[in-house]
Design a protein around this nucleic acid. Sequence first.
DNA 1: TTGTAGGCGTTATCAC
DNA 2: GTGATAACGCCTACAA
Lengths: 355, 355
Amino acid sequence: MTDGPTINTIAARAGVSIASVSRVLNGLPTRQETVRKVMAAAEELGYVRNAVARSLKSRRTHQVAFAMADIGNPVYLAMVRQIQPVLKAAGYRLVLHSTDAIAADEIDVLRSLGERYVDGLIMSPLRVTDEHLRTLAAARAPVVIIGSVPDGTRVDNVRADSRTGVRLALDHLHQLGRRRIGLVNGPLDTVPGASRGAAYAEALGALGLPYDEDLVEIGDFYRQEGARAAAALLTRRPDVDALMCANDLIALGAVDVLRASGRRVPADVAVVGMDDTDLAAASWPSLTSVSLGSAERGKAAAELLLDRLLNGEREPRVVTVPPRLLVRASTSGREPTPQYTAVPSEPRTTDGAAG
Amino acid sequence: MTDGPTINTIAARAGVSIASVSRVLNGLPTRQETVRKVMAAAEELGYVRNAVARSLKSRRTHQVAFAMADIGNPVYLAMVRQIQPVLKAAGYRLVLHSTDAIAADEIDVLRSLGERYVDGLIMSPLRVTDEHLRTLAAARAPVVIIGSVPDGTRVDNVRADSRTGVRLALDHLHQLGRRRIGLVNGPLDTVPGASRGAAYAEALGALGLPYDEDLVEIGDFYRQEGARAAAALLTRRPDVDALMCANDLIALGAVDVLRASGRRVPADVAVVGMDDTDLAAASWPSLTSVSLGSAERGKAAAELLLDRLLNGEREPRVVTVPPRLLVRASTSGREPTPQYTAVPSEPRTTDGAAG
DNA sequence: TTGTAGGCGTTATCAC
DNA sequence: GTGATAACGCCTACAA
């Protein structure tokens, strides 16, 4: 663990100048003999390039940051899983930030781009405040935002379409003959909560169903909160025959409550979740869920960022990932063939525990 | 997005030398008037320190890397969730590596420490080969290994104890009156597979139960592989009354198969998983699982590393995290109060989708 | 208290 | 081809 060798060390050892060492190491045209000497010296000394010095000179770190609200949330993990390999293939490292959904922290991350420790940033903020937009405009490195920003914002942007997603779910439930479809939503002051609430009302209208506020309950995006909210809704409207849930965790909580109340899923009440996290396929009954394409959004964001790193001056682009309805047992009643999609199909990956 | 200001820019603007600027920015004793001028100039110019130049000089990046086998695996995610906040609190950034369980990639990560883009590394290798050990000994930055290394290896090391873990599970099953306890294991050439297999045999012996190779089936650490292996075992031994599974995914696959074969869980066959991933609590019936303390191991590793970064020359330390049996419905038959442990209890974290 | 100058390890531009 | 030499942005003796 002593101080590593530098090109100076090598130059001395090989009896050449540091310029020659650098040339050899970078594959620039050099006399064979020199190449040999330098390579030999580098080999013997166990030389490794210093990435920091390199970055200072080249103004490139080959690092990209991903800032998410909560590293514990499966949705972001699905994104990380896609982002990581894309960046890795392009020779970039991934730096992770978890902002705990605090706006100030997100702003901080944006500002810290000025430190130049990364070449770019992918960020998935919970809300987009004016301050976000201002800081964004002044950002010192390319940024890709996952989540909607106001039209006209000059930034690469990857969006989900939860409006269509909710519509898909309600159409499905309607086709199954359900007419008293409840909504268990998250807080309305979050972007997803607001948009899903509005989409629910709109979809009901399109189906010719009345909007009944007794059928709507607000909780939070957790299993327990979902359970609580579902229970409240069931008390008010024991005749509900379907529950649209604003995410999978809420849906799992709803299933818990339905089961506890002696109702069968889906025979008595059909349940639809959202986000299609790993838990949807793993639960029993498996959960019908609207995928908002977390994985695709992550991949698209990584690709947008890489593209901009190569081509800094192109126009900002907006990518919208279409939703997809994954019908499983919680609405169809037929449990699909067991198939687990949580882990990639690489052979020989184990669970990493030792002992 | 033009070139950011440097201390030179500020010095010019404030009419002082770069040394004074640096002093002010670092809070060294300076005349009030100078401080004022420098701060004003810095403010106006929107100055942000360049982390790369800083690192070159200070030889510290304030970054730490975490190398895991597979970013898709819940076990590693549990570790990342703990590692991240610990590092963040200490002012370190987290760089993520996913090595796809390829030994050569892991060696690469170890070697790349010479590039000095991080101050230290936490690594959770699948197997520890001689080359790992050699590269480890020559590593140019502090490393913490999660997973067992040979005794005497001079490296900070965090271990699970799957031997005791398997023992806990088998004791539990035995107490429930189960006597024909099968094992659905992963590949024997992985560290976890080997140790869990041995632990199973040992625990049976301690309980006075015979070892019957018909009760043991090898698959891989995935749900589908687990299902296949469980099916094979059931065909051979239809009278099995409990299944010990080498991880949660295998256990979920086993439950699928048991259900498909008309057996009740746990009435006919009790099932125990391992690792206590989020899926264990989320599935139905909820899964009894042996926690090997992934979260604790992650936290311990981060703390060991931080400690060494402060105190480079202390003796290597070995931390062993004790296992814990979490009894749930797949063995006890009583479904516990719905409670979701996948996400932290921070309020107001949403699922991050927008639209 | 402040400024000058050297160095952290590389890359790149010059002459030679 | 090769070797001095000047950046990259910052910190820090040392000198003034």
